[in-house]
Simulated scan of single mutants.
Amino acid sequence: MITSLLKEVGRGKRGARDLTYNEALQAAEWIVNLEATQAQIGAFFMAERIKMESVEELEAFVNVCRSQARREHVQEGIDCAGPYDGRKKSFYATFATSFVLAAAGLPVTLHGTATLPPKWGITLQDLLLELGINPKQLSQEASLEAARETGVLFVPAEEWCPPLKRLHGLREEMGMRTVLNTAEKLVDYGHSPYLAFGVYHNTVFDRMSKLLTNLNYKKALIIQGTEGSEDLFIERPTRTYQVENGEASLQIIDPDAYGLELPPPEVDWTPAEQIAVTEAVLNGGGHLAFMNQVLLNAAVRLHLAERVDSIEEGLYTCKDLIDNGTAWELYVKWKVSLLISEQQQPLHKTTVTTP
């Protein structure tokens, strides 16, 4: 049982050893299937946090989650993988960016859950709730249909990956990061060849680059972004690692190099304010710092996914898609599609207002 493996990872900072991939796979299966007790699962997560998870251990948890999740070849695009504990102090640029990318012909997968520790911030699910869409009542087929129509797939992760739902309560009680904080972002619901992956600390660049290589993404960008997200800063350079063909290279992306650097205003962020700024940007307005942040993030991701030959070309492409209203129209189409699908759910009523 898991006790034997727990002894190996729980011998303290100096005495603990990394599990082999097969050992970690067994531990992950026991944990996600709740074949271990709550105390054993909590102890394992704590021990791994102290020891620091190895690449093999992370990969095992990712693969077990993937094996129990619904994953669809609905689109060959980019997965935008930010922290599930949300935002507290920054604009959710990746949300607006997704509709610009889809308008440019690059499908996008977004995913998340209700807020989690350690940050307990605003999540993508909170943004959908603000739009009148309840992710927990959103059918998988409705999400897939909206993706086919618009190129943007939103996945309520706990509805598509049951292990995450089983362990949500325990993670809330623990109130700290666990191996799942990484694994949940890499379930890859859309089988995306490209990945934008947010991290908090540059000390994990090497481990994450090896992990993403093992997971066989065609190209991935590891981003030490705002609040540990996949969003590039607009007021200063961002450290990133590009992973391709088993090689990782450090890339500093400086908004000043493209004439975009601008300090964003301080905002008391709420879900309503996040949506208001998102819609302002997609309509071609709002504070210039937020517009620039969306343009930079979209251009870099288009370049990563080989849709444009340079970031500069990506900036021109994305600016045109916002200026001519294409990105806004796609956002409205996606939102209305999900609102209509929710209206059709039994025992749930909502009013659909077409923007």
Rank of each mutant, 00 (worst) to 15 (best):
W30D: 11
D256Y: 15
S4K: 12
P193M: 06
L25C: 09
L6E: 05
R307M: 09
W160N: 01
L288W: 07
L262A: 15
W269V: 04
E29I: 06
E57P: 13
F91R: 02
A47F: 13
V277A: 06
G10V: 06
T226G: 12
A276F: 11
L167I: 05
D268H: 06
P255A: 08
G169I: 03
E23G: 10
T326Q: 08
L302N: 05
G175L: 11
E48W: 08
R177E: 13
D254P: 11
L124S: 03
G82P: 01
W30K: 07
E141Y: 04
R207N: 14
S98H: 10
L128R: 00
R307W: 08
T351W: 04
E48Q: 13
A43R: 15
V199E: 03
E130R: 03
A39M: 14
P135G: 03
G105M: 07
I234L: 06
G112A: 10
A36I: 10
L6N: 09
H191F: 12
I340H: 06
T123F: 05
G190N: 02
E48D: 10
P355L: 03
S341Y: 01
F197N: 05
A147W: 00
V308T: 10
T94V: 07
M52W: 08
P83V: 08
I252F: 08
L260V: 09
F61I: 14
P135R: 00
L321F: 04
G15F: 00
A28M: 09
T123I: 05
W120Y: 14
T178I: 04
R87T: 06
Y258E: 07
A272F: 03
T113H: 10
Q38E: 15
P263K: 14
Y200L: 15
L144N: 00
N33A: 12
E172F: 01
T213D: 10
H287T: 12
I133S: 02
G132E: 01
Q345A: 10
A220V: 06
G12I: 06
G228N: 11
M174R: 07
E329S: 11
A157F: 02
I322T: 04
L34C: 13
L262W: 15
F61T: 12
F205R: 00
N33R: 13
R11F: 04
L116F: 02
K165F: 02
L282D: 05
M1K: 08
G175F: 13
T109K: 06
Q343E: 03
I252E: 12
G228M: 11
R236W: 14
H201D: 15
K219E: 10
T240G: 09
L347G: 03
V152H: 01
V300L: 08
K136T: 07
L315K: 02
T351P: 00
P263H: 14
L304D: 07
